[in-house]
Write a protein that binds this DNA or RNA. Structure first.
Lengths: 237, 237
DNA sequence: GGAATAGTGTCTATGAGACATTATTCC
DNA sequence: GGAATAATGTCTCATAGACACTATTCC
Protein backbone atom coordinates (compact mmCIF):
# COMPACT_ATOMS: atom_id res chain seq x y z
CA UNK A 1 0.00 0.00 0.00
CA UNK A 2 1.07 3.54 -0.74
CA UNK A 3 1.63 5.98 2.08
CA UNK A 4 0.38 5.34 5.58
CA UNK A 5 -0.01 7.65 8.53
CA UNK A 6 0.35 5.71 11.69
CA UNK A 7 0.98 8.65 13.99
CA UNK A 8 -1.80 11.11 13.38
CA UNK A 9 -2.67 13.46 16.21
CA UNK A 10 -5.80 12.46 18.12
CA UNK A 11 -8.19 14.72 19.98
CA UNK A 12 -11.47 14.19 21.82
CA UNK A 13 -14.08 16.92 21.27
CA UNK A 14 -17.44 17.21 23.01
CA UNK A 15 -20.77 18.59 21.81
CA UNK A 16 -22.54 19.29 25.10
CA UNK A 17 -26.15 20.38 24.73
CA UNK A 18 -28.38 21.93 27.33
CA UNK A 19 -31.61 23.91 27.20
CA UNK A 20 -31.32 27.47 28.48
CA UNK A 21 -34.34 29.74 28.52
CA UNK A 22 -36.12 27.45 26.14
CA UNK A 23 -33.31 27.37 23.60
CA UNK A 24 -31.09 24.46 22.73
CA UNK A 25 -27.55 25.57 23.52
CA UNK A 26 -24.09 24.15 23.06
CA UNK A 27 -20.96 24.64 25.18
CA UNK A 28 -18.09 26.39 23.39
CA UNK A 29 -14.67 27.56 24.49
CA UNK A 30 -12.82 30.59 23.19
CA UNK A 31 -9.31 29.72 22.10
CA UNK A 32 -6.68 31.71 23.97
CA UNK A 33 -3.62 30.22 22.36
CA UNK A 34 -2.54 28.01 19.47
CA UNK A 35 -3.50 29.12 16.09
CA UNK A 36 -7.18 30.18 15.97
CA UNK A 37 -6.88 32.81 18.75
CA UNK A 38 -10.28 34.31 19.42
CA UNK A 39 -12.14 31.60 17.56
CA UNK A 40 -14.61 29.39 19.36
CA UNK A 41 -14.22 25.65 19.57
CA UNK A 42 -15.75 22.60 21.15
CA UNK A 43 -14.22 21.73 24.51
CA UNK A 44 -11.71 18.95 24.05
CA UNK A 45 -8.12 17.89 23.76
CA UNK A 46 -5.87 14.87 23.48
CA UNK A 47 -6.75 11.55 25.12
CA UNK A 48 -5.77 11.43 28.76
CA UNK A 49 -3.14 8.83 29.56
CA UNK A 50 -4.54 5.77 31.32
CA UNK A 51 -8.09 7.02 30.72
CA UNK A 52 -10.42 5.73 28.05
CA UNK A 53 -11.98 8.06 25.54
CA UNK A 54 -15.21 8.60 27.50
CA UNK A 55 -13.27 9.57 30.59
CA UNK A 56 -11.05 11.83 28.53
CA UNK A 57 -14.11 13.64 27.21
CA UNK A 58 -15.33 14.19 30.78
CA UNK A 59 -11.94 15.43 31.89
CA UNK A 60 -11.80 17.99 29.13
CA UNK A 61 -15.27 19.21 30.07
CA UNK A 62 -14.15 19.72 33.66
CA UNK A 63 -11.00 21.38 32.45
CA UNK A 64 -12.91 23.81 30.24
CA UNK A 65 -15.49 24.86 32.81
CA UNK A 66 -13.77 24.42 36.15
CA UNK A 67 -15.94 21.39 36.90
CA UNK A 68 -19.07 23.52 36.58
CA UNK A 69 -20.72 21.12 34.16
CA UNK A 70 -21.40 17.42 34.50
CA UNK A 71 -23.34 15.79 31.71
CA UNK A 72 -26.34 13.63 32.51
CA UNK A 73 -25.48 11.60 29.45
CA UNK A 74 -22.35 11.24 27.34
CA UNK A 75 -21.88 9.03 24.30
CA UNK A 76 -19.54 8.74 21.39
CA UNK A 77 -20.78 10.57 18.31
CA UNK A 78 -18.42 9.75 15.47
CA UNK A 79 -14.81 10.22 14.43
CA UNK A 80 -13.65 12.88 12.02
CA UNK A 81 -10.54 12.23 9.98
CA UNK A 82 -10.67 14.02 6.64
CA UNK A 83 -7.03 14.59 5.65
CA UNK A 84 -7.35 18.37 5.29
CA UNK A 85 -9.61 19.10 8.25
CA UNK A 86 -6.62 20.55 10.04
CA UNK A 87 -4.29 22.16 7.50
CA UNK A 88 -1.29 21.90 9.81
CA UNK A 89 -1.14 18.17 10.42
CA UNK A 90 -3.24 15.07 10.06
CA UNK A 91 -5.57 15.28 13.00
CA UNK A 92 -8.26 12.81 13.95
CA UNK A 93 -11.03 13.91 16.27
CA UNK A 94 -13.25 11.56 18.23
CA UNK A 95 -16.48 13.47 18.71
CA UNK A 96 -18.67 13.02 21.79
CA UNK A 97 -22.25 14.04 22.43
CA UNK A 98 -23.55 15.03 25.85
CA UNK A 99 -26.80 16.24 27.38
CA UNK A 100 -27.21 18.05 30.67
CA UNK A 101 -29.80 19.94 32.69
CA UNK A 102 -29.67 23.70 32.62
CA UNK A 103 -27.40 25.32 35.19
CA UNK A 104 -28.75 27.86 37.68
CA UNK A 105 -25.88 30.24 36.84
CA UNK A 106 -23.93 30.93 33.65
CA UNK A 107 -20.84 28.82 33.10
CA UNK A 108 -18.83 31.94 32.54
CA UNK A 109 -17.65 32.26 36.12
CA UNK A 110 -14.49 33.42 37.84
CA UNK A 111 -11.35 32.16 36.23
CA UNK A 112 -13.03 30.61 33.16
CA UNK A 113 -14.47 33.52 31.24
CA UNK A 114 -13.86 31.71 27.98
CA UNK A 115 -16.51 29.00 28.20
CA UNK A 116 -20.18 29.65 27.55
CA UNK A 117 -23.30 28.07 26.17
CA UNK A 118 -24.31 29.45 22.80
CA UNK A 119 -27.92 29.09 21.69
CA UNK A 120 -27.83 26.78 18.73
CA UNK A 121 -29.95 28.91 16.38
CA UNK A 122 -27.53 31.82 16.80
CA UNK A 123 -24.71 30.23 14.95
CA UNK A 124 -26.89 28.79 12.29
CA UNK A 125 -28.41 32.07 11.15
CA UNK A 126 -27.36 34.90 13.46
CA UNK A 127 -25.12 37.78 12.46
CA UNK A 128 -23.16 37.71 15.70
CA UNK A 129 -22.53 34.00 15.25
CA UNK A 130 -19.11 33.03 16.57
CA UNK A 131 -16.47 31.83 14.19
CA UNK A 132 -15.81 28.15 14.74
CA UNK A 133 -12.57 26.27 14.44
CA UNK A 134 -11.96 23.56 11.83
CA UNK A 135 -15.05 21.42 11.16
CA UNK A 136 -16.59 21.97 14.59
CA UNK A 137 -19.74 23.47 13.08
CA UNK A 138 -20.20 20.25 11.17
CA UNK A 139 -19.65 18.19 14.31
CA UNK A 140 -22.29 20.20 16.15
CA UNK A 141 -24.70 19.62 13.27
CA UNK A 142 -24.09 15.89 13.43
CA UNK A 143 -24.56 16.02 17.19
CA UNK A 144 -27.90 17.76 16.82
CA UNK A 145 -29.11 15.22 14.32
CA UNK A 146 -28.05 12.37 16.60
CA UNK A 147 -29.73 14.05 19.57
CA UNK A 148 -32.97 14.39 17.64
CA UNK A 149 -32.87 10.75 16.61
CA UNK A 150 -32.02 9.52 20.10
CA UNK A 151 -35.02 11.25 21.62
CA UNK A 152 -37.18 9.11 19.38
CA UNK A 153 -36.14 5.73 20.66
CA UNK A 154 -34.52 6.33 24.04
CA UNK A 155 -35.54 7.93 27.32
CA UNK A 156 -32.58 10.33 27.22
CA UNK A 157 -34.79 13.43 27.12
CA UNK A 158 -34.91 13.21 30.91
CA UNK A 159 -31.17 13.94 31.05
CA UNK A 160 -31.99 17.51 29.99
CA UNK A 161 -34.01 17.91 33.21
CA UNK A 162 -33.42 18.01 36.93
CA UNK A 163 -35.80 15.76 38.89
CA UNK A 164 -38.57 16.20 39.75
CA UNK A 165 -40.11 17.48 36.55
CA UNK A 166 -43.56 17.72 35.02
CA UNK A 167 -44.75 16.06 31.85
CA UNK A 168 -44.94 19.51 30.30
CA UNK A 169 -41.26 20.07 31.12
CA UNK A 170 -40.45 16.83 29.34
CA UNK A 171 -42.64 17.76 26.41
CA UNK A 172 -40.87 21.09 26.10
CA UNK A 173 -37.54 19.26 25.87
CA UNK A 174 -38.86 17.34 22.88
CA UNK A 175 -40.33 20.49 21.36
CA UNK A 176 -37.09 22.41 21.75
CA UNK A 177 -34.77 19.73 20.43
CA UNK A 178 -37.07 18.73 17.59
CA UNK A 179 -38.28 22.24 16.80
CA UNK A 180 -41.93 21.21 16.64
CA UNK A 181 -45.11 21.48 18.66
CA UNK A 182 -46.52 18.33 20.20
CA UNK A 183 -50.06 17.56 21.24
CA UNK A 184 -50.03 17.68 25.07
CA UNK A 185 -52.74 15.07 25.53
CA UNK A 186 -51.20 12.45 23.27
CA UNK A 187 -47.69 13.14 24.54
CA UNK A 188 -48.76 12.58 28.12
CA UNK A 189 -50.48 9.32 27.31
CA UNK A 190 -47.48 8.04 25.37
CA UNK A 191 -45.03 8.89 28.14
CA UNK A 192 -47.06 7.97 31.21
CA UNK A 193 -49.26 5.10 30.10
CA UNK A 194 -47.77 3.49 27.04
CA UNK A 195 -44.10 3.33 27.94
CA UNK A 196 -43.39 1.52 31.17
CA UNK A 197 -40.47 2.91 33.10
CA UNK A 198 -39.96 6.10 31.14
CA UNK A 199 -41.06 8.23 34.08
CA UNK A 200 -42.43 7.39 37.53
CA UNK A 201 -44.62 9.63 39.66
CA UNK A 202 -43.24 11.14 42.84
CA UNK A 203 -46.72 11.63 44.25
CA UNK A 204 -46.12 15.35 44.62
CA UNK A 205 -47.40 18.11 42.43
CA UNK A 206 -46.11 21.55 41.61
CA UNK A 207 -48.06 24.79 41.29
CA UNK A 208 -47.32 26.11 37.84
CA UNK A 209 -49.22 29.37 37.75
CA UNK A 210 -52.17 27.54 36.24
CA UNK A 211 -53.42 24.10 37.14
CA UNK A 212 -51.03 22.20 39.43
CA UNK A 213 -48.94 19.58 37.62
CA UNK A 214 -47.99 16.13 38.82
CA UNK A 215 -44.29 15.57 39.33
CA UNK A 216 -42.19 12.70 37.98
CA UNK A 217 -38.66 11.43 37.99
CA UNK A 218 -36.82 9.36 35.39
CA UNK A 219 -37.70 5.65 35.45
CA UNK A 220 -35.50 2.62 34.81
CA UNK A 221 -36.30 2.25 31.10
CA UNK A 222 -33.67 3.27 28.58
CA UNK A 223 -35.39 2.45 25.31
CA UNK A 224 -38.72 3.50 23.88
CA UNK A 225 -40.53 0.67 22.16
CA UNK A 226 -42.42 1.63 20.15
CA UNK A 227 -40.59 4.91 19.61
CA UNK A 228 -41.95 8.41 19.99
CA UNK A 229 -42.09 9.46 16.37
CA UNK A 230 -40.89 12.89 15.41
CA UNK A 231 -43.33 14.79 13.22
CA UNK A 232 -42.09 16.62 10.13
CA UNK A 233 -40.43 19.77 11.39
CA UNK A 234 -42.56 22.90 11.16
CA UNK A 235 -39.87 25.01 12.83
CA UNK A 236 -42.05 26.27 15.64
CA UNK A 237 -40.55 27.38 18.94
CA UNK B 1 -4.41 18.55 33.22
CA UNK B 2 -2.26 15.60 34.07
CA UNK B 3 -0.75 13.50 31.35
CA UNK B 4 -1.88 13.76 27.76
CA UNK B 5 -1.28 11.46 24.83
CA UNK B 6 -1.33 13.48 21.66
CA UNK B 7 0.37 10.93 19.45
CA UNK B 8 -1.49 7.69 19.87
CA UNK B 9 -1.31 5.19 17.02
CA UNK B 10 -4.44 5.15 14.87
CA UNK B 11 -5.80 2.23 12.87
CA UNK B 12 -8.92 1.68 10.79
CA UNK B 13 -10.51 -1.77 11.18
CA UNK B 14 -13.43 -3.14 9.20
CA UNK B 15 -16.19 -5.57 10.18
CA UNK B 16 -17.38 -6.77 6.77
CA UNK B 17 -20.45 -9.00 6.89
CA UNK B 18 -21.82 -11.18 4.15
CA UNK B 19 -24.20 -14.12 4.06
CA UNK B 20 -22.64 -17.40 2.88
CA UNK B 21 -24.74 -20.51 2.63
CA UNK B 22 -27.36 -18.99 4.84
CA UNK B 23 -24.93 -18.00 7.58
CA UNK B 24 -23.88 -14.52 8.57
CA UNK B 25 -20.13 -14.38 8.05
CA UNK B 26 -17.38 -11.88 8.76
CA UNK B 27 -14.12 -11.29 6.90
CA UNK B 28 -10.97 -12.00 8.92
CA UNK B 29 -7.29 -11.97 8.09
CA UNK B 30 -4.64 -14.22 9.56
CA UNK B 31 -1.71 -12.27 10.90
CA UNK B 32 1.56 -13.26 9.25
CA UNK B 33 3.85 -10.90 11.10
CA UNK B 34 3.92 -8.50 14.03
CA UNK B 35 3.11 -9.88 17.34
CA UNK B 36 -0.01 -12.07 17.18
CA UNK B 37 1.35 -14.43 14.49
CA UNK B 38 -1.32 -16.95 13.57
CA UNK B 39 -4.10 -15.02 15.25
CA UNK B 40 -7.01 -13.73 13.24
CA UNK B 41 -7.87 -10.08 13.02
CA UNK B 42 -10.20 -7.69 11.28
CA UNK B 43 -8.79 -6.33 8.03
CA UNK B 44 -7.39 -2.88 8.61
CA UNK B 45 -4.39 -0.69 9.18
CA UNK B 46 -3.29 2.90 9.57
CA UNK B 47 -5.12 5.75 7.84
CA UNK B 48 -3.96 6.24 4.27
CA UNK B 49 -2.30 9.59 3.63
CA UNK B 50 -4.49 12.03 1.73
CA UNK B 51 -7.46 9.67 2.07
CA UNK B 52 -10.28 10.07 4.55
CA UNK B 53 -11.16 7.32 6.98
CA UNK B 54 -13.88 5.77 4.79
CA UNK B 55 -11.50 5.53 1.87
CA UNK B 56 -8.81 4.11 4.11
CA UNK B 57 -11.18 1.38 5.21
CA UNK B 58 -11.89 0.50 1.59
CA UNK B 59 -8.20 0.47 0.75
CA UNK B 60 -7.42 -1.95 3.55
CA UNK B 61 -10.21 -4.23 2.37
CA UNK B 62 -8.72 -4.30 -1.12
CA UNK B 63 -5.28 -4.85 0.33
CA UNK B 64 -6.44 -7.79 2.44
CA UNK B 65 -8.32 -9.61 -0.30
CA UNK B 66 -6.62 -8.56 -3.53
CA UNK B 67 -9.61 -6.44 -4.44
CA UNK B 68 -11.87 -9.49 -4.33
CA UNK B 69 -14.41 -7.78 -2.08
CA UNK B 70 -16.25 -4.53 -2.53
CA UNK B 71 -18.81 -3.66 0.09
CA UNK B 72 -22.29 -2.62 -0.98
CA UNK B 73 -22.37 -0.45 2.11
CA UNK B 74 -19.71 0.92 4.44
CA UNK B 75 -20.23 3.12 7.48
CA UNK B 76 -18.34 4.15 10.54
CA UNK B 77 -19.12 1.97 13.55
CA UNK B 78 -17.40 3.48 16.56
CA UNK B 79 -13.92 4.23 17.86
CA UNK B 80 -12.11 2.09 20.40
CA UNK B 81 -9.55 3.70 22.64
CA UNK B 82 -9.33 1.91 25.98
CA UNK B 83 -5.79 2.55 27.25
CA UNK B 84 -4.89 -1.11 27.62
CA UNK B 85 -6.55 -2.50 24.52
CA UNK B 86 -3.10 -2.85 22.99
CA UNK B 87 -0.56 -3.63 25.71
CA UNK B 88 2.34 -2.36 23.62
CA UNK B 89 1.29 1.21 22.98
CA UNK B 90 -1.75 3.43 23.14
CA UNK B 91 -3.67 2.49 20.04
CA UNK B 92 -6.94 3.95 18.86
CA UNK B 93 -8.99 2.01 16.35
CA UNK B 94 -11.73 3.53 14.20
CA UNK B 95 -14.11 0.65 13.51
CA UNK B 96 -16.07 0.40 10.28
CA UNK B 97 -19.04 -1.76 9.38
CA UNK B 98 -19.69 -3.06 5.88
CA UNK B 99 -22.23 -5.28 4.12
CA UNK B 100 -21.77 -7.10 0.84
CA UNK B 101 -23.42 -9.71 -1.32
CA UNK B 102 -22.05 -13.23 -1.18
CA UNK B 103 -19.20 -13.98 -3.55
CA UNK B 104 -19.44 -16.81 -6.09
CA UNK B 105 -16.02 -18.11 -5.01
CA UNK B 106 -14.19 -18.14 -1.68
CA UNK B 107 -12.03 -15.10 -0.94
CA UNK B 108 -9.15 -17.41 -0.15
CA UNK B 109 -7.68 -17.30 -3.62
CA UNK B 110 -4.19 -17.29 -5.08
CA UNK B 111 -1.78 -15.09 -3.26
CA UNK B 112 -4.09 -14.23 -0.37
CA UNK B 113 -4.62 -17.47 1.49
CA UNK B 114 -4.88 -15.58 4.74
CA UNK B 115 -8.25 -13.90 4.26
CA UNK B 116 -11.55 -15.73 4.65
CA UNK B 117 -15.10 -15.29 5.77
CA UNK B 118 -15.86 -16.97 9.07
CA UNK B 119 -19.44 -17.86 9.92
CA UNK B 120 -20.34 -15.70 12.84
CA UNK B 121 -21.78 -18.44 15.03
CA UNK B 122 -18.51 -20.36 14.85
CA UNK B 123 -16.53 -17.95 16.89
CA UNK B 124 -19.24 -17.37 19.38
CA UNK B 125 -19.72 -20.96 20.40
CA UNK B 126 -17.61 -23.25 18.22
CA UNK B 127 -14.63 -25.23 19.44
CA UNK B 128 -12.56 -24.44 16.37
CA UNK B 129 -13.23 -20.76 16.82
CA UNK B 130 -10.25 -18.69 15.75
CA UNK B 131 -8.33 -16.71 18.31
CA UNK B 132 -8.89 -13.03 17.75
CA UNK B 133 -6.49 -10.18 18.26
CA UNK B 134 -7.02 -7.44 20.87
CA UNK B 135 -10.68 -6.46 21.26
CA UNK B 136 -11.70 -7.46 17.75
CA UNK B 137 -14.27 -9.92 19.04
CA UNK B 138 -15.92 -7.05 20.86
CA UNK B 139 -15.85 -4.90 17.74
CA UNK B 140 -17.53 -7.65 15.74
CA UNK B 141 -20.20 -7.93 18.41
CA UNK B 142 -20.85 -4.21 18.24
CA UNK B 143 -20.97 -4.43 14.46
CA UNK B 144 -23.56 -7.20 14.60
CA UNK B 145 -25.73 -5.24 16.97
CA UNK B 146 -25.50 -2.18 14.73
CA UNK B 147 -26.29 -4.29 11.67
CA UNK B 148 -29.38 -5.72 13.36
CA UNK B 149 -30.57 -2.26 14.33
CA UNK B 150 -29.92 -0.77 10.90
CA UNK B 151 -32.05 -3.39 9.19
CA UNK B 152 -34.96 -2.15 11.23
CA UNK B 153 -35.02 1.41 9.98
CA UNK B 154 -33.03 1.44 6.74
CA UNK B 155 -33.21 -0.38 3.40
CA UNK B 156 -29.63 -1.66 3.76
CA UNK B 157 -30.68 -5.32 3.75
CA UNK B 158 -30.58 -5.10 -0.04
CA UNK B 159 -26.82 -4.54 0.12
CA UNK B 160 -26.49 -8.19 1.16
CA UNK B 161 -28.01 -9.20 -2.20
CA UNK B 162 -27.15 -9.05 -5.87
CA UNK B 163 -29.98 -7.70 -8.02
CA UNK B 164 -32.36 -9.01 -9.09
CA UNK B 165 -33.64 -10.78 -6.00
CA UNK B 166 -36.91 -12.19 -4.72
CA UNK B 167 -38.82 -11.07 -1.67
CA UNK B 168 -37.95 -14.40 -0.11
CA UNK B 169 -34.26 -13.69 -0.64
CA UNK B 170 -34.70 -10.40 1.15
CA UNK B 171 -36.66 -12.03 3.94
CA UNK B 172 -33.92 -14.58 4.42
CA UNK B 173 -31.42 -11.74 4.87
CA UNK B 174 -33.52 -10.42 7.73
CA UNK B 175 -33.97 -13.87 9.19
CA UNK B 176 -30.25 -14.61 9.06
CA UNK B 177 -29.07 -11.32 10.51
CA UNK B 178 -31.79 -11.19 13.16
CA UNK B 179 -31.80 -14.89 13.91
CA UNK B 180 -35.59 -15.14 13.79
CA UNK B 181 -38.33 -16.45 11.52
CA UNK B 182 -40.60 -13.93 9.85
CA UNK B 183 -44.11 -14.40 8.54
CA UNK B 184 -43.73 -14.44 4.73
CA UNK B 185 -47.12 -12.88 4.03
CA UNK B 186 -46.72 -9.92 6.35
CA UNK B 187 -43.10 -9.38 5.35
CA UNK B 188 -44.02 -9.17 1.70
CA UNK B 189 -46.78 -6.67 2.35
CA UNK B 190 -44.54 -4.49 4.48
CA UNK B 191 -41.76 -4.45 1.91
CA UNK B 192 -43.73 -4.23 -1.30
CA UNK B 193 -46.84 -2.27 -0.40
CA UNK B 194 -46.22 -0.30 2.74
CA UNK B 195 -42.75 1.09 2.10
CA UNK B 196 -42.46 3.08 -1.11
CA UNK B 197 -39.11 2.77 -2.79
CA UNK B 198 -37.70 -0.09 -0.74
CA UNK B 199 -37.80 -2.43 -3.74
CA UNK B 200 -39.11 -2.03 -7.28
CA UNK B 201 -40.27 -4.86 -9.54
CA UNK B 202 -38.20 -5.77 -12.58
CA UNK B 203 -41.22 -7.38 -14.25
CA UNK B 204 -39.38 -10.68 -14.52
CA UNK B 205 -39.81 -13.75 -12.41
CA UNK B 206 -37.53 -16.58 -11.45
CA UNK B 207 -38.29 -20.30 -11.25
CA UNK B 208 -37.42 -21.34 -7.72
CA UNK B 209 -38.14 -25.03 -7.76
CA UNK B 210 -41.63 -24.28 -6.51
CA UNK B 211 -43.89 -21.45 -7.53
CA UNK B 212 -42.09 -18.82 -9.65
CA UNK B 213 -41.16 -15.69 -7.70
CA UNK B 214 -41.34 -12.11 -8.89
CA UNK B 215 -37.99 -10.34 -9.11
CA UNK B 216 -37.09 -6.97 -7.64
CA UNK B 217 -34.19 -4.58 -7.41
CA UNK B 218 -33.35 -2.04 -4.70
CA UNK B 219 -35.41 1.13 -4.89
CA UNK B 220 -34.41 4.73 -4.14
CA UNK B 221 -35.56 4.77 -0.49
CA UNK B 222 -32.92 4.65 2.23
CA UNK B 223 -35.07 4.82 5.35
CA UNK B 224 -37.95 2.68 6.52
CA UNK B 225 -40.73 4.73 8.08
CA UNK B 226 -42.34 3.18 9.95
CA UNK B 227 -39.56 0.68 10.67
CA UNK B 228 -39.62 -3.06 10.25
CA UNK B 229 -39.68 -4.13 13.86
CA UNK B 230 -37.48 -6.99 14.96
CA UNK B 231 -39.28 -9.63 17.01
CA UNK B 232 -37.72 -10.97 20.17
CA UNK B 233 -35.01 -13.37 19.09
CA UNK B 234 -35.97 -17.02 19.20
CA UNK B 235 -32.63 -18.07 17.76
CA UNK B 236 -34.01 -19.94 14.77
CA UNK B 237 -31.93 -20.42 11.67
C1' DG C 1 -65.88 35.60 34.14
C1' DG C 2 -61.91 34.87 30.95
C1' DA C 3 -57.50 32.92 29.75
C1' DA C 4 -54.16 29.50 30.15
C1' DT C 5 -52.56 25.09 31.45
C1' DA C 6 -53.14 20.11 33.38
C1' DG C 7 -55.27 16.08 32.74
C1' DT C 8 -59.08 12.74 30.87
C1' DG C 9 -62.27 10.86 27.37
C1' DT C 10 -63.37 9.40 22.78
C1' DC C 11 -63.23 8.53 17.92
C1' DT C 12 -60.84 7.28 13.56
C1' DA C 13 -57.35 5.64 10.55
C1' DT C 14 -53.35 2.91 10.05
C1' DG C 15 -50.72 -0.89 10.28
C1' DA C 16 -48.71 -5.20 12.56
C1' DG C 17 -49.59 -9.87 13.34
C1' DA C 18 -52.22 -14.17 12.85
C1' DC C 19 -53.99 -17.20 9.79
C1' DA C 20 -56.72 -18.91 5.75
C1' DT C 21 -56.77 -19.42 0.76
C1' DT C 22 -55.28 -19.94 -4.02
C1' DA C 23 -51.73 -20.77 -7.51
C1' DT C 24 -47.67 -22.96 -9.25
C1' DT C 25 -44.07 -26.18 -9.50
C1' DC C 26 -41.49 -30.61 -8.48
C1' DC C 27 -41.73 -35.21 -6.67
C1' DG D 1 -52.11 -36.48 -5.61
C1' DG D 2 -48.92 -34.48 -2.08
C1' DA D 3 -45.49 -31.27 -0.49
C1' DA D 4 -43.42 -26.93 -0.64
C1' DT D 5 -43.24 -22.18 -1.79
C1' DA D 6 -45.25 -17.63 -3.79
C1' DA D 7 -48.66 -14.48 -3.49
C1' DT D 8 -53.27 -12.64 -1.99
C1' DG D 9 -57.25 -12.06 1.26
C1' DT D 10 -59.25 -11.20 5.72
C1' DC D 11 -59.71 -10.39 10.53
C1' DT D 12 -58.29 -8.49 15.08
C1' DC D 13 -55.82 -5.66 18.20
C1' DA D 14 -52.79 -1.83 19.45
C1' DT D 15 -51.86 2.78 19.02
C1' DA D 16 -50.93 7.44 16.90
C1' DG D 17 -53.27 11.54 16.05
C1' DA D 18 -57.20 14.70 16.26
C1' DC D 19 -60.13 16.95 19.11
C1' DA D 20 -63.69 17.66 22.78
C1' DC D 21 -64.18 18.20 27.57
C1' DT D 22 -63.36 19.06 32.67
C1' DA D 23 -60.56 20.94 36.46
C1' DT D 24 -57.62 24.31 38.49
C1' DT D 25 -55.30 28.51 38.98
C1' DC D 26 -54.22 33.56 38.10
C1' DC D 27 -55.82 37.85 36.17
Amino acid sequence: MSELEADATVTVDVVLFTIRQGRLSVLLVERQDDPFVGCWALPGGPPVAAADLDQSANRHLEEATGAAVSPGHLEQLRTYGTPDRNPEARQISVGYLGFMADLPAPVTAGDRPSARFWPHDDFLTGDDAPELVLDHRQIIGDGLERARAKLEYTTLATTFLEAPFTISDLRRVYQTVWGVQLEPANFRRKVVERTDGFVEPTGESRPTGRAPALLYRAGPATELTPPLVRPDADEAS
